[in-house]
Design a binder for these strands. Sequence first.
DNA 1: TCTGGGGTCCTAGGACCC
DNA 2: TCTGGGGTCCTAGGACCC
Length: 413
Amino acid sequence: MIALADCNNFYVSCERVFRPHLQNRPVIVLSNNDGCAVARSNEAKEIGVPMGAPFHQIKSLCQQNGVQVFSSNYELYGDMSGRVVSVLRRFAPELEVYSIDESFLDFSGISDPLGLSVRMRRTVGQWTGIPISVGLGSTKTLAKLANRLAKKMGSGCMQVDHGDLEALGRVAIEDVWGVGKRLAVRLRRVGAHDAWSLTQVPASVVRSIGGVTLERTWQELRGTPCLDLEEVPSARKNTCCSRSFGKPVTGLVELEEAVANYAVRAIRKVRAEGSLACGIQVFVMTNRFREDQAQYSNARALSLDEPTDDPIRVIRRAKELLRAIYRPGYSYKKAGIILLDLVSSNSQQGLLFEEFGDDRTRGFVDAVEEVAARYGTMGGFWGAQGMDHSWRMRREMRTPRYTTNWSEIPEFG
DNA sequence: TCTGGGGTCCTAGGACCC
DNA sequence: TCTGGGGTCCTAGGACCC
């Protein structure tokens, strides 16, 4: 038996923990750059705020209905997520953290999984303030489906067995985990309108529509597990850092500064995981929504002759790539860097004819990075990152980092 | 004026090789 | 009319997820 614990409207719930007066009121949280609504309270959903709606399109709807609007506060959400996981782990030590707000738990051998789910849900709520729902099934896909029904019915916990025509029939085809918009259209054409009818489609038809991936989903809905619980997350293969700009950027200097900042962030992620990058890709693009403006987007990659986690080297090569794709005369909206083909620094293989790094540079880089880690991003930074940051994304309605920053700890009374 | 960011896996097709 | 066949590797693009 597998349980899926999923936090309800997670970002909104995090905001509510520190602002209890937001309970029972419509609340939304916006994506980076205050772009789209990415989390909505049930009240906001009822008012008709669509998922992913651009904020400028729903602004008046929100004002008319007194919707509380927040910029996203990822430091807070990340920390709250860790707290939820630590409580879940007490109930089932074999656990896969699937995303910031979802974990799969191994409930095999438990005599009363539903009873345990109810207790787990209550405890997470009491200890962290975050409401969760729990879905139970013999496969991940069924647990996911059960979770969706638990949320829909308001029951909080639910179990779905394979072959349960009633339950599977209540989940629309596009709401099945692994079936997106495109596949849903093609599946409806062959009569699969819900999870149940999908299980009745012949395997060969499923395979011709969605390949082996969809066939796995089909198997899982029929009760045959195809997706394992991954307790140890497999090593990431690439890592990306990109942002939309708060205002259009035209000059190469500003773009270079932005890309250098993204490079530093990306390399910090890589360092934290003990990995090295074997390649770098840089991309830029204009605002694809502006039909009145000339459009341009481009990307270029290079392979490093030696895997690295050295920010100096990565910044230098990233700027070379940027200069190769930069074209003057455009209004750029977004840029980013991808570090490619990450390898573990343990398996580092030196070049035959080149020394690996040099110790003095290495010591210097490590020192700067340590200062940055201890005193914040402006405590230690690289010259290429600049100080002006006029291109920085908007985050005008962000709440304090209540749990991760000493100066922002909440005071009550 | 304003439209997110970060991932994974699979497949088709081209380049290249013998 | 007819154009070899069978591999591997790489990349771009499509589909999905949160």
